[in-house]
Amino acid sequence: MSGPAPANRLVVPVVVLAVLLAAPPFLSSYVLTLLTQSLIYAIVAMSLDLLLGYLGLPSLGHAAYLGVGAYSVGILTSRYGAGFGTVLPVGVGLALILAAVFGLLALRATGVYFLMITLALGMVAWGLAYRWVSLTQGDNGISGLPRPDVPLPWSLAGAIPFYYFALAGFLLALGVLWLIVHSPFGMSLVGVRESETRMRTLGYHVWLHKYLGFVISGGVAGFGGVLWAYYNGFVGPTDLDLSTSVEVLLMVALGGRATLLGPALGAGIIVFLKNLVSVYTQRWLLILGAAYIGTIVYAPEGIVGAVRRLSEATEPAPARPEA
């Protein structure tokens, strides 16, 4: 796992963080909005990275957890007037529970079958959101959601305060995931990805590792979903349809698997691409489609992976295990 020296590796993230902290007053409100969206989607993408990058399990139903978090906000605030202090634990808790149930089913399969079963489970969640009209208001979704009522001296109604709120959420999720993947548990997840047989022989409980990774990943995605609903003020079935799940997969693949910050970068690129391209041309689906194919053809190991490979080619660094 040794790349460039640790101090070197920190330079880019610290600079990026400084820019993210200092930038808002200088940005147009539109760009700030997109940046907020990127941060929230980055949470979801990083959560999928735990599953796809570190465990090697490609899920096609990750939007389900985002959806559970988002609908928790929608239903609890619109029906019961619940505050952020209630909604956040319920949303994340429900996402964890959902992942705990889905994980039991999905982890019976591997490879293609894992993709298929997660697709099916994602469709179950989408189908409920779309059709269970008395709870979810179906296709119309739930709109008019308020911004979170946090005990802070300033209101989160404005774009800049909410941006910092999303940034805090992003850093929290990043911190949690970073600690997990650098813990002995996280290392053994990579071990499971590389060879289940070897890990089993070494005495690890392979299924339990996969299961815990699956559940944690779902919980973090649910956290992203809670923020997403608060940001949008709206939640609808499109938030958890297949194309959302695939988009998150693209973010992870584009940024670089098993790098956490790579998928966050991928999230930013896709959010900006989607929005900016649609300003200039109506053919943004075409360009998004090309982005999917281009990622696989030209950057199969993602942006961060490609950058690392280049830097390792120029300086004699120790070999890194193949992802």
Binding site: A253, R283, G289, T295
Partner: peptide
């Protein structure tokens, strides 16, 4: 053998065909 690559490539084509 590259499931992720297949998913992303074929979705890409699906989007392009949809737009065309």
């Amino acid at each position: 053998g590259e499931e992720l690559g297949q998913v992303l490539t074929t979705v890409g084509f699906a989007l392009i065909f949809q737009d065309l």
